[in-house]
Amino acid sequence: MKKWLIPVIIIVVIVFGLYKWGVGFNNTAVKLNENISESWGNVQTAYQRRNDLIGNLVKTVQGAADFEKGTLVGVIEARAKATSINIDPSKVTPQQLAEFNKVQGGLSGALKSLLVTVERYPDLKANQNFLKLQDELASTENQILTARTRFNENVKPYNNHVKTFPNSILAGWFNFEGKPYFESEAGAEKPVDVNFDFNKKKE
């Protein structure tokens, strides 16, 4: 073998190795990113189901003529905020996810206040349609928790793939950035603070 062929072969092997590494990194990152997109779709579906149920719940509660208007307005406004945020999972930032989490937490708090306030209305509590919606909401909250957990589970292998060295070098070249995790909603560990003032004139 001619001596000049040896460095040529070495260069070809190195270039081929770098090519295989780049292709392997990119393809794996794409697949992991698709898993995140799919799990995010499930998160959105679960939240959309809750929003639909809350809309029906509000209509049912509005049938109680003397029900506190302020409580309903709070739920309606929180629901409007929660549905106003759209996130692209391929470009999601920690700030976007934190804002999404914040408004969804605000809706959860408003909904809890509504359900506690219903305790003052025996007829409404006995309404079969209301009871059915309440049960479906409880089931949907579990679906949301599961969807958020699975989203985080899909984010972890992706982040491990793009953030660990030497893959982190290629991640910058291919524009693959780490994804944020869902964190617990602010105040989720605290009970809802409801002030029962039965002497207060209803709005």
Rank of each mutant, 00 (worst) to 15 (best):
V103P: 07
P122G: 02
T140P: 11
Q95W: 06
S90I: 05
K81W: 03
R79H: 08
N101D: 15
Q143P: 02
P122V: 04
N86D: 03
G74K: 12
A110E: 08
G109S: 01
A126P: 12
S84H: 04
V73F: 10
A78H: 02
N101E: 09
L131H: 09
F100D: 12
Q128I: 06
V75Q: 04
L137D: 06
K91Y: 05
G106K: 12
N129V: 13
G105V: 10
L131E: 14
G109Q: 08
V118G: 07
N86E: 15
A98C: 10
T93W: 09
F130I: 05
L111Q: 00
K81M: 01
E77M: 02
T140A: 13
G105T: 04
T71H: 09
K102I: 01
T117D: 12
E136T: 09
P89D: 03
S90C: 04
K102Q: 13
V92G: 07
L111M: 01
T93R: 08
A138Q: 14
L111Y: 08
A98R: 10
S108L: 11
F100R: 15
P94N: 11
K81F: 02
I87H: 14
N129K: 11
S108V: 01
G105D: 05
L131K: 14
L137Q: 00
L114T: 09
S113R: 15
D135T: 11
T117N: 14
K125A: 02
A126F: 05
G106M: 05
K132P: 08
N101W: 01
L137F: 00
F130A: 04
A80H: 07
K112D: 11
A126L: 05
A98M: 00
A80W: 13
S108C: 02
Y121M: 10
A80C: 10
L72D: 00
